[in-house]
Computed example of a mutant assay.
Amino acid sequence: MPLSPRLSVLDLVPVRSGQSSSEALAASVALAQAADRLGFTRYWFAEHHNMPSVASTTPPVLIAATAARTERIRVGSGGVMLPNHAPLVVAEQFAALEALAPGRIDLGIGRAPGSDPVITQLLRVSGPTADVDRFPDHVADILSLLSPDGATLRLTSGREYPIQATPAATDVPELWLLGSSDYSARLAAELGLPYVFANHFSGEGLEQALDLYRTGYRPSERHPAPQTILTLNAVVADTVDEAEARALPQLRAMARLRLNRPMRPLETVEEAATAARDSDAEDVVARMRTRWVIGEADAAASAVRALAERHGIDEVMVAPIAGARADEPPDAAPGRVRTLELLAERLAA
């Protein structure tokens, strides 16, 4: 049964204390299978590097594995941080993914580094590819390279040199621009591309970014009208108390990040509940949670629906960040699965 509004999933592949990367990845694949079964539209993996609590370092690898283990749901990146990669490599990877799972691949592109300055330098050793100022050119390059006709490079000798991301493409991945500022909204509008606002990370400037995108939109052949996704952190459980308890590990982790403190694997629900009080962190948590959906099913579904209606959003992409209890299997994420189940149940059209 279709969901209204359309729902999708954003996954950073969280790693909790006592859990291996292998177990975290198994839990995420199982979550994707649940989303597939429940009628979610797409399942995206973020790109982050060198973080003790995040295993989504290589979206193309995770997309391939997940597409092979699901049947209907679109799978993609949310996103590939383009300054870290050569445009041709990105185009080749996603052309191959589209060939493996025709009609089910999304390429979400962002221009943030996805890590700290040291890792950024290690990722960007490729010279001019890492020039953030050339981001619009590199997006345009990928669009050309992914097309069935490919692109043409004019060499210094004057000779034209044809380039294709894959030899005989029959279709292309759907390309989205991600952002949390006016920059990406303006660029998506200029290129006639769908746009994702990263509300799960900040939420500041949402109304202005959407207005700039919609008023400046230039229709393209593939996307004659603007199309929007809004991301949202959510923890939904059978009771408010359970939702609050499962939200605390991620809230505390985000507070450490905002306060520039050392990161570590996510706490379990029990570890977060018994941790020493920290007034600075609690202040950050209090500010963040106002933008998150945390609660029981009916209230959470109403909040999601109201958010989509208030901003005219086509699709809400939920980051199900429910923490795990110490006695739950390390290769599963029951709290995250339950978040998706309850939202799908209440938002079924």
Rank of each mutant, 00 (worst) to 15 (best):
L206V: 09
A64C: 05
L122A: 04
A130G: 14
L342E: 07
L232F: 06
E271I: 00
G179S: 01
A68Q: 07
S28L: 02
L175H: 02
G127N: 06
P60F: 10
S77M: 08
Y183D: 07
L10G: 07
L347F: 08
R277M: 15
W176E: 02
V236N: 11
L153Y: 14
A319T: 07
A130K: 05
I229Y: 15
P52K: 13
G335W: 00
A30C: 03
A24D: 02
R37S: 12
D283H: 08
L100C: 06
A273G: 08
A276F: 05
L100G: 08
T170C: 09
L25A: 06
T290I: 12
F94E: 00
E92C: 10
P330G: 03
S77L: 07
H223D: 06
A273D: 09
Q164S: 09
D211A: 12
S21V: 11
S77D: 01
P52Q: 11
L178S: 15
N233G: 14
P117V: 11
A275T: 13
S144L: 08
A91R: 00
R74D: 11
S17D: 14
V132F: 11
R218L: 13
D280Q: 09
L100Q: 13
L146V: 04
A253G: 06
E270F: 00
V337K: 13
P162T: 03
T66V: 05
G216M: 09
V125M: 13
A96I: 08
A297F: 12
A95S: 03
D278F: 00
L259S: 11
S181D: 05
V269T: 01
G150E: 01
V304Y: 00
A32P: 03
A299C: 12
A101F: 11
I119K: 14
L343K: 08
L187F: 03
A306K: 11
E309T: 13
E190F: 01
S279L: 10
N199R: 14
L257E: 15
N84L: 04
Y161V: 00
P219N: 06
V240D: 14
T58E: 11
P136K: 02
I109H: 13
P102A: 14
P173E: 03
R325P: 11
V284I: 12
E160A: 15
A165E: 01
V269F: 00
T268R: 04
A34L: 10
V9A: 09
H85M: 02
E190G: 01
H48F: 09
A247Y: 06
S184K: 04
H223G: 12
L340H: 12
N233H: 15
H138I: 03
D280Y: 02
P87W: 03
S28F: 01
A64S: 09
V132L: 13
G216T: 11
E267H: 10
